[in-house]
């Protein structure tokens, strides 16, 4: 029982992170109908920016953990959104209007490019951050097992919930949100109403990257280490989460993230930690076979 509750906590934390990354996939798919395979690597870049930031602040003698965290979050969000913008501008926009496959291949190329860039400039070894976020709350002990809620987990859940509500408000209530949804439904018509579609797409990429950046900082805080390859696995898992929730659906991305996180946590605890990725990707295959529109996605109905 205690183990199950511990894994529930761990799973929700992990799921929150996947959910944040999955939103980037789902938003981009919604607006331009492509899967941005470089999105996982954008997340990886943000984690590296976080490591650099934390190390820099530590060497400058900043000892206040909240101050360091807020500074790094802001820096990482800013720089990572610029990455998101640049990727769209250089790798996808020139291919708009060509075949559907072209931007997909370009995305894979961009993913490899980002990985190699970080590997070359930062080295291939695992990078740690100075331990800053240790400790937690011991909830209870039973059967010799202590259920522990780490401070970093509380942080992840609070930040994710806050971010999700802000983001939902942005999409449903603001002028930008309306413009974004209009572009999803009919880009041509949106342009003919005087809306700058290219700018909307750029902003979508930047917001997706910003959310991934928050996820990147959180993961850095949570695990304390990063390497240039984390983007690939996290990206594919977040993509699975997006597909599971229904690609194009924002609540679906969050729900899919949570489910994937929970499955991974419970699978690791009760079956096999080595094969946890097998569980995740089996789900991807099953969803694609039996419910391609996902849990919350609506199947495409062709009107005749």
């Amino acid at each position: 029982m205690a183990l199950a509750i511990q894994q529930l906590i761990n799973g929700l934390t992990l799921g929150a992170v996947y959910g944040l990354i999955a939103i980037g996939y789902t938003m981009v798919y919604g607006i331009i109908g492509m899967i941005n395979f470089a999105h996982g690597d954008i997340y990886m870049v943000s984690a590296f920016i976080a490591v650099t930031g934390f190390t820099l602040l530590a060497s400058l003698g900043v000892s206040s953990v909240p101050l360091a965290l807020v500074t790094v979050l802001v820096l990482s969000v800013l720089f990572t959104s610029v990455y998101g913008w640049a990727v769209e501008r250089t790798a996808y926009r020139p291919l708009r209007g060509s075949t559907r496959l072209a931007p997909l291949i370009s995305a894979i190329g961009m993913s490899i490019f980002l990985q190699n860039m970080v590997q070359l400039t930062q080295g291939a070894r695992v990078k740690p951050i100075p331990p800053m976020f240790v400790g937690g709350i011991d909830l209870f002990t039973s059967e010799g097992f202590t259920v522990r809620l780490a401070y970093s987990q509380i942080l992840i859940v609070i930040v994710t919930v806050a971010l999700m509500s802000g983001f939902t408000y942005l999409i449903t209530k603001t002028s930008f949100g309306r413009q974004q949804r209009a572009c999803e439904q009919d880009r041509t018509m949106t342009a003919l109403l005087g809306i700058n579609v290219d700018r909307t797409i750029s902003l979508t990429f930047m917001i997706g990257a910003a959310l991934a950046a928050v996820a990147g900082v959180m993961v850095t805080v949570y695990y304390g280490v990063v390497d240039f390859y984390i983007g690939f696995v996290a990206g594919i898992k977040a993509f699975t989460a997006a597909v599971l929730g229904g690609v194009g659906s924002l609540p679906g991305a969050m729900l899919g993230g949570l489910i994937i996180g929970l499955i991974e946590a419970f699978w690791s605890a009760y079956l096999s930690a080595e094969y946890k990725d097998v569980a995740t990707f089996s789900i991807l295959i099953l969803v694609l076979m039996f419910r391609p529109s996902g849990l919350l996605g609506r199947p495409e109905v062709e009107k005749v």
Partner: peptide
């Protein structure tokens, strides 16, 4: 070519996006 998933009112507000965007300093 309406935006079928938006309400009628939202369809008309989207068309006034530029005025809103200026007033909102880009959101």
């Amino acid at each position: 070519r309406l935006f079928p998933k938006m309400t009628v009112l939202e369809n008309l507000i989207v068309a006034q996006h530029n005025a809103l965007q200026q007033a909102s300093f880009f959101t």
